[in-house]
């Protein structure tokens, strides 16, 4: 079993994506096929960006166990008031900084759900949000 944990810093757009790039490199070295690799990388990057844009910071954890990859994002708040609303395509509360970087279209959460084989989101205001994603790589 391989495990790695990455810290994601609020508002750090310059480094956003570095954790996901590292996760992608790790999985590539394990021989994961390119289409699965792309799905995992996109979902990971979206979750990392969400923490940079919306949260007070958090962690992204990778667990590789045989033929399954589990990615968990865990942030420090402020939580999502209405998760169902946040899951809708096009719904966004991103600010102008995020939009200047090309994000905030309201596609992040739906894109994670679409790319993951299993997706779960738990959120509490003001404690934070946890997203669990699983991918089959067998």
């Amino acid at each position: 079993m391989i495990q790695a944990k990455y810290t994601v810093v609020r508002g750090d757009y310059a480094r956003a994506g570095e954790a996901s790039a590292d996760i992608k490199r790790t999985l590539k070295q394990l021989g994961v096929d390119s289409s699965t690799l792309r799905r995992i990388a996109v979902a990971s990057y979206e979750s990392e960006l969400n923490m940079v844009i919306h949260s007070l910071g958090g962690t992204l954890t990778l667990v590789i166990d045989n033929d399954r990859v589990k990615l968990t994002s865990n942030d420090l708040g402020p939580g999502i008031f209405d998760v169902n609303e946040a899951m809708q395509e096009g719904y966004s509360t991103a600010d102008d900084i995020a939009r200047n970087y090309g994000f905030g279209a309201g596609m992040g959460l739906p894109n994670m759900r679409r790319n993951a084989d299993k997706f779960a989101i738990y959120s509490m205001v003001p404690d934070g949000t946890t997203i669990e994603m699983e991918f089959n790589i067998g």
Binding site: G17, A21, V42, F103
Partner: peptide, 11 residues
């Protein structure tokens, strides 16, 4: 910006 390159990397 750098996120264009990161996006290209993921895809």
């Amino acid at each position: 910006n750098i996120q264009v390159v990161r996006t290209a990397e993921m895809l």
